[in-house]
């Protein structure tokens, strides 16, 4: 296979990680909302946990975006 083509395909595959991170973010916010609906008074106290979970998931998504960018422009 042509190296340039392989690079593009690799970058495309790397973006799978972003989609999976999107799933993770959806799960985090979905579970937070379902918990908050059951006990609205406790929702505010879960702010730090929500921040932590979301930031870590989002960071992993950004990592795969970075890998795609590196494959496209650096390698």
């Amino acid at each position: 296979m042509d190296a340039a083509a392989a690079k593009l395909i690799g970058a495309g595959i790397a973006t799978f990680g972003m989609g999976l991170a999107a799933l993770g973010v959806g799960i985090i916010f979905g579970l937070f909302l379902s918990g908050a609906l059951r006990n609205p008074a406790a929702a505010n106290a879960q702010r730090p946990n929500l921040l932590f979970g979301f930031a870590v998931t989002e960071a992993l998504g950004i990592f795969s975006f970075l890998v795609a960018l590196i494959l496209l422009f650096v390698v």
Partner: peptide, 28 residues
């Protein structure tokens, strides 16, 4: 009157994006 769940989620989204970007940039 505790803040609504949506406000909590929106603030986590805004601040979390910032820290996520910081993790990626620090790695690079």
């Amino acid at each position: 009157h505790a803040p609504q769940a949506r406000q909590v989620a929106a603030s986590a989204l805004a601040r979390g994006t910032r820290y996520a970007a910081e993790i990626a940039v620090a790695t690079v």
